[in-house]
Amino acid sequence: MLKRYTRIQQEGKTYYGLLNQDGTVQILEGNSPENFRETKVIVKDFKQLSIPCAPSKIVGTGLNYKDVVLKPGESLPAKPKLFIKPPTALIGDGDQVMQPPMVKDLSCEVELAVVIGKKCKCVPEGEAENYIWGYTVANDMTASDLQAEDTLWGRAKSFDTFLPVGSVIVSGIDPSQLELCSKINGKPGQKGNTKDLIKGVYWLVSYISHVMTLLPGDMIITGTPSGYGIKVKPGDCMEMEIQRLGKISNKVAAVETPYYF
Rank of each mutant, 00 (worst) to 15 (best):
L49I: 11
T136D: 00
L18A: 06
G117M: 00
K247G: 02
G30M: 06
A253L: 13
I198D: 02
K79N: 10
T213I: 07
K233N: 14
F46P: 08
L146K: 08
E29W: 10
E241W: 02
Y202G: 11
P188N: 04
P100H: 12
S226G: 12
E241N: 02
K187C: 05
Y131G: 07
M212D: 06
L112M: 00
E241M: 01
G223N: 04
I221G: 00
K251C: 12
N31R: 09
D22Y: 14
F162E: 00
I198A: 01
W203V: 04
V97N: 07
Y260K: 15
E109I: 13
I242M: 00
Q9K: 15
D174G: 12
S171K: 09
S176G: 05
Y228M: 10
D236M: 13
S107E: 11
L2W: 10
C237F: 11
P124H: 09
Q21A: 13
D105F: 14
Y131P: 08
T213S: 06
N250E: 06
Q9V: 15
V110Q: 00
F83H: 04
S107P: 01
G73P: 02
K157L: 06
K247T: 04
H210C: 14
I91V: 15
A78P: 05
N31D: 15
G200Q: 07
I91D: 00
P86R: 05
E149C: 11
C237T: 15
G12W: 03
E74Y: 09
V69P: 05
T224P: 03
K247E: 06
Y16M: 05
Y15Q: 10
Y259D: 09
G17T: 07
L146V: 13
K187P: 01
D218Y: 14
M240H: 07
T213A: 06
V25N: 13
T88V: 10
I184T: 04
Y135L: 00
D196A: 12
D174L: 12
T224H: 04
N20T: 09
K157F: 06
G227Y: 08
V252F: 15
Q243T: 12
K47E: 15
S50W: 09
S75Y: 10
V255L: 14
M102V: 12
V170L: 05
D95Q: 15
E29Q: 14
V110K: 04
D67E: 05
P33K: 07
S206T: 03
S56F: 01
F261M: 13
G223T: 04
K183Q: 11
I42W: 06
T151H: 14
K85D: 01
S158Q: 08
Q99M: 14
G17S: 08
G172I: 10
L245W: 03
Q177K: 15
G192H: 02
Y259H: 12
W133D: 02
G166T: 03
V232W: 04
C237R: 11
S56W: 02
K40C: 13
G126A: 12
Q9S: 14
P234H: 04
M98G: 02
P80T: 01
Y65Q: 01
I173C: 11
V205Y: 05
Q190C: 13
E11K: 08
A78M: 05
E109Q: 10
K13N: 07
I91A: 06
I173A: 10
I208A: 02
P80G: 00
K195N: 11
P77R: 10
E179F: 11
